[in-house]
Design a protein around this nucleic acid. Structure first.
Lengths: 199, 199
DNA sequence: ATATAAAAATACTGACTGGTATAAAAATGA
DNA sequence: TCATTTTTATACCAGTCAGTATTTTTATAT
């Protein structure tokens, strides 16, 4: 809820559009190397003054955290929906692969996975959110495998915990490959090969 | 051959130990995030003056390239040896997994894979070396699969090219997990699961 | 009108970056 | 002894960073 309408009765009215700053920030973090994105550059691109941005988000850590939060809300729940569709193992894996390879919003990779990969460079608040989102994703994966095992359409010998980690890492790999511009059919073959261990 | 003995007959004798600078640089790049390692800090840690380091290596790009080169010479050929041992698929995969999980030099991951992951932040010379080493590794993996296929102990449907890329990425993943301090048996389970598609 | 409150705009701080100019030091050759 | 050569050490450069102090603007309340 980082909006612009504080509705203070006195004082100069706020003109900064926090929404727009976040849009710009997401785009910048997403497209460029995280270390190359400065608060300065975001302020310039969003046409917002630096003190305004700092008043809105506290510090750089707050801005990156808000950007990731906004991004995750927009996108991250879609994977959960696929996993929780209640379909069988094969259909679910097919849908998952299709989503990860073809979804236009993942054309340049996934900001969450990108931040997860560069976790040690993040501020504490952003890092905490990354870990939170990661736990949530892992939990989703794990209940998926538990469901498939109890339904009887998965007889894998590995623990659901390891399976969940494996799935998460393979997804991360595919997204990193998309981000690096790798050939789409190659990515699909690799991801399909990796997930074939569950079929 | 970046040695210290230029054997110039005149002038103040060289005291900088290029070897030591490289040691320090490798350790620094290896332990810390690449973006956090500055030429300044390396000079300080190696007790070498900045102009001396710049005379020896040209610029930051030259230093990182030399560090990666030195590192690769020390370590990277071991993987090739395992792949070229001429053993069967299962034995080779077992040996490979064992090496990647247990080799002490890979306890904090692999500098090559780390630099490959952060490729876009590297200077042109270092980037070129990374791509060279990557091509070499891919080539090794691919001939390994070609051999196993011609020997008749691999009947996989994917191309040797995709198999090679897959193997390379799974190794990279395992090394990244080691670098991030993940539990060793978990890493082994995940890598074993990933490579089980070849058995 | 005028005091007050809040935000905006500008310009700044101190630290750190990669890279270098300059001068002192330490060797050899004549 | 003294000029020459090479490396070292110190100190600097311009640029960028995250973050902020200060002043100006724009509103409302009295």
């Amino acid at each position: 809820m980082t909006t612009t309408d504080h509705k203070s009765l006195r004082g100069r009215p706020k003109t900064i559009r926090a929404e727009k700053v976040l849009e710009v920030a997401i785009e910048a973090y997403w497209q460029n190397d995280l270390a190359d994105v400065s608060v300065n550059s975001i302020c310039r691109a969003a046409q917002a003054s630096k003190p305004s941005v700092y008043r809105e988000f506290g510090n750089e850590d707050g801005l990156t955290r808000a950007a990731l939060e906004s991004y995750a809300e927009q996108l991250l729940s879609d994977v959960s929906k696929i996993l929780q569709s209640g379909q069988g193992m094969n259909e679910t894996l097919d849908a998952l692969i299709d989503f990860i390879i073809t979804d236009a919003r993942l054309e340049i990779g996934c900001l969450f996975h990108k931040m997860r990969a560069g976790k040690n460079r993040l501020g504490p608040k952003t890092r905490q959110l990354v870990e939170e989102l990661n736990r949530a994703a892992q939990g989703n994966y794990q209940t998926f495998f538990q469901d498939r095992r109890s339904t009887g359409d998965w007889y894998g010998t590995v623990s659901t915990d390891v399976a969940a980690k494996y799935l998460g890492e393979q997804i991360a790999l595919a997204l990193a490959q998309r981000a690096s511009g790798e050939n789409a059919t190659t990515i699909r073959e690799i991801l399909s090969l990796a997930l074939s261990v569950f079929r």
